[in-house]
């Protein structure tokens, strides 16, 4: 499968999820696009238009519920990342964060990890392939691992930055 089809699939799945389309229906729409361009040899963008516009045409406007969940995921992830970054700087520079002992921000950040991951999983249920029934999106394990690795990398980067700027 070509890179452009892969990119298009990812964008289409994201746009349909953001539109609150049920996972089974997302699988159908994505498989239709892939099957069609495999037959015609066209670029999916050329045959179906930009992923976001095609998703809007298929799904209708995003439901208020899906927007709320997207907001919850973003807010929790942002708070989680911010607390961890501030916590790391606090620990390295030995400065309190928000008037609390610096270690607390770090702990609070990691405590937020669980609800952030749960909200992420809730807003992106696995999309089944209509032919095989197998998931065509990253599984729950990959989402959890991806977010954990990202936060660990963020922590390491902040530590490095803090150490360099404090010395």
């Amino acid at each position: 499968m070509s890179t452009s089809t892969d990119t298009y699939r990812r964008q289409l799945v994201q746009a349909l999820q953001a539109g609150g389309v049920p996972p089974g229906r997302i699988g159908e729409v994505v498989a239709e696009v892939e099957s069609h361009v495999a037959d015609t040899g066209e670029d999916p963008r050329e045959a179906f238009g930009p992923a976001r516009e095609y998703a809007a045409a298929v799904a209708g406007p995003p439901s208020p519920g899906s927007r709320v969940w997207l907001g919850v995921v973003l807010a929790l992830s942002a708070a989680c990342g911010w607390l961890i970054a501030e916590g790391v700087f606090g620990v390295v520079r030995n400065e309190p964060v928000l008037g609390l002992p610096e270690g607390w921000a770090l702990v609070a950040g990691w405590l937020l990890w669980a609800p952030a991951v749960l909200a992420q999983l809730r807003s992106r249920p696995p999309v089944p392939d209509p032919l095989t029934g197998r998931p065509m999106t990253p599984g729950r394990g990959q989402v959890v691992l991806g977010m954990t690795v990202f936060l660990a990398a963020l922590m390491a980067a902040c530590w490095l930055l803090a150490a360099l700027t404090t010395a």
């Binding site: 498989a31 239709e32 892939e34 099957s35 495999a38 037959d39 032919l131």
Partner: peptide, 12 residues
């Protein structure tokens, strides 16, 4: 209904 395609992805 979806059916297995020859080599490529399935067809609806």
């Amino acid at each position: 209904s979806w059916r297995e395609g020859a080599g490529g992805p399935g067809r609806k």
